[in-house]
Each structure stands twice: as structure tokens, then as C-alpha cells.
């Protein structure tokens, strides 16, 4: 009886295997059919949330876009605060931003939010974990394509941002690539990767401004 069941299971498995392989062959390189602009999600939310907020018990995901929250006027406001324009065919008003609200029991303890940024050789995904006051608990680059990627993804580089908030990043001018105060002290670990270094800082500033617009200002807890 048991072996008969096993045979059936095996036969099914074989069929499925052939099926998936045939499909793999057709697809070769899998493409997720997403329509519209692409957002920036955690690769593995369960694992990432547990790593960034060890005491958390769960999280909720919400989506926001400039288009839905305020449209063109909001875009102008964000650009003004950023000190740079949104540019390129991917940095648009309809980009959906994924905001992870982190809970410990019933209490909300913080946020995780990432943004896409154009890097020298590919897209850069800059994530921050924020406490309820908007202070950076962790900064890390989820994805970056570069010869010097390792240095920029090094925890030591990210650690420099711990404790900073939007107030500090407001001292950074993405056009000039210069900042004062705490931002000014951030060291570029590889001088050759200046473009990606600046992109990471611009992404961080954009990230915090968007969080302020989407979350903190509406909750009346402006940092």
C-alpha cells in the first residue's frame, strides 16, 4: 500500500519535473510580469525584518506613490527638499514605494523602507531601518552592481549612518556631492566609486524625505 502510494507520488513528481523543466526551458531567464514602474522590495522580508528588528513580532506592508499622495505638487516639493530633480525614465511619480511597518506585539516600533537609485553600472537599492522618531537604526545597500560593491556593502560603511536622521541629510547637496555636519564626515571607502557613493547618499536623502512625506508628517511626529 505504502509503496503503491510512493509510486504514484514518484510518477506525479516525474510529471511535474518534466513540466517544470519544459517551462524552465521556455523561460530560460525568468521575468516577473510587473506592469508600470518598478518598486523596491526586500528580497526576503521575513528574514530581513527579523535581522533589522530582532525584537519585532511581525510587520505590515503598505504602498505609497507620489502620484497617489499628492501628484505633481508633491513631486515639486520632494525635488525642492532633495535639492535635485527626479530624472531618467525610471525615477517617476508613479513609482510604488513599499513601506514595512514593524510591530512588537501590538506596538509599532519602526519602519523599513528602500528606494531605487541609478548607479554607475546598474540599479542601487538603498534600505534604511528607522525607529519611530525617524532616526536611522541601520543602513544597507541591498543590491549594487559594481567592481567595488563589496566596500560599499560593508557593514562598516553602513554603520556611519546609525543615529542620523533627515535633519542631518538635509545638509547634503546631491548636485555638488558635498555635505556639512555629520554627512560631511561620511567617508567614501573607495575613491574610484565616487559615482556610486554619491548615488547612495542621494538615495538615502530621497528615502528619508519620502518617509517624511508619506509617514512622519501625516502622523504628526515630524522628527
Amino acid at each position: 500500500m505504502k509503496s503503491a502510494l510512493k509510486d504514484v507520488a514518484l510518477a506525479l513528481d516525474q510529471r511535474l519535473r518534466v513540466f517544470y523543466l519544459a517551462v524552465t526551458l521556455i523561460i530560460l531567464v525568468t521575468a516577473t510580469p510587473v506592469c508600470g514602474a518598478v518598486g523596491c522590495d526586500l528580497n526576503d522580508p521575513d528574514r530581513d525584518v527579523a535581522r533589522l528588528f530582532p525584537n519585532s513580532s511581525g510587520y505590515r506592508t503598505s504602498y505609497a506613490s507620489i502620484e497617489k499622495r499628492g501628484g505633481e505638487p508633491l513631486l515639486r516639493k520632494v525635488e525642492t527638499r532633495l535639492g535635485d530633480r527626479f530624472h531618467g525614465i525610471y525615477e517617476t511619480v508613479d513609482v510604488p514605494y513599499t513601506i514595512y511597518e514593524i510591530y512588537s506585539g501590538k506596538e509599532k516600533v519602526g519602519y523599513i523602507h528602500g528606494v531605487n537609485e541609478k548607479g554607475q553600472f546598474g540599479g542601487i537599492q538603498v534600505f534604511v531601518a528607522l525607529d519611530m522618531a525617524g532616526t536611522i537604526k541601520s543602513f544597507y545597500i541591498q543590491k549594487i552592481t559594481s567592481q567595488w560593491a563589496k566596500k560599499l556593502r560593508d557593514p562598516a560603511f553602513g554603520a556611519q549612518f546609525r543615529g542620523m536622521s533627515l535633519k542631518d541629510l538635509e545638509q547634503y547637496d546631491p548636485l555638488a556631492g558635498k555635505g556639512t555636519g555629520k554627512v560631511g564626515e561620511i567617508q567614501n571607502p573607495v575613491s574610484e566609486a565616487e559615482t556610486d557613493f554619491r548615488a547612495a547618499l542621494r538615495a538615502l536623502k530621497k528615502n528619508l524625505i519620502l518617509m517624511d512625506e508619506f509617514v512622519f508628517s501625516t502622523e504628526g511626529k515630524k522628527p
Binding site: 514602474a37 554607475q120 553600472f121 540599479g123 552592481t145 567592481q147
Partner: peptide, 24 residues
Amino acid sequence: GFEAAELEQREVGDMIFVPEKNVK
């Protein structure tokens, strides 16, 4: 392809980097 370009935020004229081989 469109989605590859979107993911990498590439436009014509940009560079891409082949990992492992360090080729641009």
C-alpha cells in the same frame, strides 16, 4: 530587455558591469 533595464535603471549610453569577469 525592458524589465532588465528597469531593474538596473539603465538608459542608452549607461554602462553595465559583468560580474565575475569585471567587464564593462
